[in-house]
Design a protein around this nucleic acid. Structure first.
Lengths: 225, 225
DNA sequence: GTCAACTTTGTTGTAGACAATCCGGCCCGG
DNA sequence: CCGGGCCGGATTGTCTACAACAAAGTTGAC
């Protein structure tokens, strides 16, 4: 599972990253118990490092902990997923605006490269690959914005959302439109037009949100406590 | 400093809240070193509890830690303060929209009560009291929105901003206009008009942002590394 | 006098041990 | 058959001790 035992002073950060990745990649599924001793043994570190890492993940919203009862991977209700997507939308609009103002040519090139990859995935019907590109796209765009605060918040929101990400993209017929929306955003950024970038990002995430609500309504016709 | 020693299982949460409050109330100033042993003795808990609390505060952006060198209260540059305010604006607009849709009558009453307090502070020139009310106002509004995700993110942003909050409100001549902006927001919420609520919140925070930039430019004519 | 290497001091990072607490199964009376 | 109390295993919360490390101070040679 691990390559080398982390050096002194890196144990906690190592645990944090490994656990985070494990959740993002679906190796730790929502609801799953996270036993400190077990994780410590797996990662080759002490319980203290695991403990503080879990505390950070809790603060980030990836993990849930209750006193004396340990930690589990947080399980989202549909409402929470919608909320997170709404917050993401608000922040990514901000990021898109800044990206239009501050993106360097190489950022735009990278975005266009990802667009080409997305198009290729779309052609061969590879939804999973498309979803992965989609993640990279948004990540690169936010990074290009140079807005460290938005990036930090969005990273944490993204980490909570992954499980739902796949569903939304799989909504039937949305794939080509999604691709077009992404292209429009890049064009606005390349044209250094902050208003258009923000507006198009808003439109895009609005569509994703609608799609998520649709899929959710279809999946759980009348659930959510 | 403390009332009772926290019971088993509450140590970490207790530390977290106490340290957070200490930073928010200015008893721990930015840049100040946070020595684990010392805090543990002060709070009457073990070092482990302090340690995990510091990890959470780091994740929240309130403190900074570097390996083997301990933690300090995070010190913001002007640019970071602007970024945080921008993120706050994006999220509070979302919250204002939701508040307009979901606020209960008692929430509106509470907001109007705070408005009256603010007006009183403004009349007697009590900037500090006004600033405190301002904080309560935004907190209550966000709570009324029922948007747990936005609330969580905004709480953390707020915790990072406090040191700058006072300055912005002290900008000369802004106090009456600020009051009017708040009143306009409450009116929109009371009228259940989400578009107006969002727009007015945006206008308000835009004004605050401009004011912050102005004050910052005046204070450090050409600083910020 | 200056600079480098060494020592000292204070603090953090980690390991191990132990008690408190929770969860499950179990027994027993109704 | 069912509910309440009791016990055992598992897991967490906390404490103590100690090694690793950083920063400041000290020594000594040039």
């Amino acid at each position: 599972m691990r390559a080398v035992r982390p050096k002194r002073g890196e144990g906690e950060a190592y645990c944090y990253q490994q656990l985070r990745r494990a959740v993002l990649e679906g190796r730790l599924v929502p609801g799953q118990r996270l036993v400190e001793t077990e994780l410590a043994r797996m990662l080759g570190v002490g319980r203290a490092a695991v403990r503080t890492a879990l505390a950070r993940l809790e603060q980030e919203g990836v993990v849930e902990r209750s006193p004396n009862r340990g930690a589990r991977v947080r399980l989202l209700t549909e409402e929470e997923a919608v909320e997170i997507l709404e917050a993401r939308a608000a922040l990514e609009c901000l990021a898109a605006r800044h990206a239009a103002l501050r993106a360097r040519p190489q950022d735009v090139r990278e975005l266009r490269a990802i667009l080409r990859e997305m198009a290729a995935c779309a052609r061969r019907g590879d939804s999973l690959g498309y979803s992965e590109c989609n993640g990279r796209f948004h990540h690169v765009l936010v990074r290009a914005s140079g807005h460290a605060t938005a990036q930090r918040l969005l990273d944490s929101l993204w980490a909570q959302m992954v499980r739902y990400q796949y569903r939304t993209v799989l909504a039937p017929g949305r794939l080509p439109r999604s691709l077009e929306e992404h292209r429009a955003i890049v064009d606005a950024v390349a044209a250094k037009d902050p208003d258009a970038a923000e507006a198009r990002m808003r439109a895009h995430l609005q569509a994703v949100l609608t799609s998520l609500r649709e899929v959710a309504r279809r999946t759980w016709p009348a659930a959510a406590p």
